[in-house]
């Protein structure tokens, strides 16, 4: 498939993401401690680290599924300052710009695959039902799932569901995409189908932040690698370089643990 196919209907430029001095606690537990990070427009950042390192929480702060305690988040031209009251319109605007894909897919089981992809377009972009479903079918076809359109998600395999979830987010023309361990719930051979779609998206110039344990994907597709532990960024830089020559002992231990799995 040509790079660009998945996003060619996207008129807006892809947005950068800037995270600055972000902190977040759950009760007494400091999960993110003064995190700053820059994701350039059109680049892919892979976020790795042991579980409990705060990488998922960081990702979820970007679209405010978690509310940060301190710091700022900028997506494109929109800046959210922690502590300041976020208006509903501002929140929806942010989420409209940022697509998210979850580990557990989270498709809507009471809608068909087609409605899963079309319904949010109608509500959010104000598209007509015909227009939304046409766009949905086009995208489903591009990930090889047009024949599943009339099925309910429960009838689809995990890999298919995750590709549908990606398409559901893409149908809204997001300017950046967040992936929260998108292949962790999948068998390895099924995960490959999902990674292929993500790779295409990256080739098309989508800004992506990917929390993952897929080291090969992080190295081949990632422009930037961020290693987190205990709520801190312990190391970041070129993925291949860090994987070959980790500077930090924590990174070394984590990498060898993941690679030996």
């Amino acid at each position: 498939m040509n790079p660009g196919l998945l996003t060619q209907a996207t008129p807006l430029a892809h947005a950068g993401v800037e995270i600055s001095h972000l902190s977040k606690s759950f009760g007494d537990n400091l999960v993110l401690d003064d995190i700053s990070m820059t994701v350039k427009p059109g680049s892919v950042t892979a976020l790795i680290g042991p579980s409990g390192s705060g990488k998922s929480t960081l990702l979820r702060c970007v679209n405010l599924l978690e509310t940060p305690d301190e710091g700022t988040i900028t997506v494109g031209s929109q800046t959210i300052v922690a502590g300041a009251k976020v208006k509903d319109r501002q929140l929806l605007e942010l989420r409209r710009q940022v697509g998210m894909v979850f580990q557990s897919f989270n498709l809507f089981p009471h809608y068909t695959v087609l409605r899963n992809v079309a319904f949010p377009q109608e509500k959010i972009l104000g598209r007509s039902r015909e227009e939304a479903e046409e766009r949905a079918l086009t995208l489903l076809e591009r990930v090889g799932l047009k024949d599943k359109a009339e099925q309910h998600p429960g009838r689809c395999s995990g890999g298919q569901q995750q590709r549908i979830a990606i398409v559901r987010a893409l149908a809204l023309n997001p300017r950046a995409m967040l992936f929260d361990e998108p292949t962790s719930a999948l068998d390895p051979e099924v995960g490959i189908e999902v990674l292929a779609v993500m790779r295409e998206l990256a080739d098309a110039g989508m800004t992506m932040i990917v929390v993952t344990h897929e080291m090969q994907f992080a190295r081949d597709v990632g422009d930037h690698l961020v290693v987190m532990a205990d709520g801190h960024i312990i190391e970041e830089g070129n993925p291949a370089e860090i994987m070959a020559h980790p500077r930090e002992e924590r990174t070394r231990r984590f990498l060898s643990a993941v690679l030996e799995r």
Binding site: N63, L65, D88, L92, R95, R96, V98, G99, M100, F102, S104, N106, L107, F108, P120, K123, I124, A165, R168, A169, L172
Partner: peptide, 17 residues
Amino acid sequence: PRGQAEASAALGLGVRT
């Protein structure tokens, strides 16, 4: 599952929808 409300929110759907 909690993910249903989260996915809906992440898509940008409002509280009522």
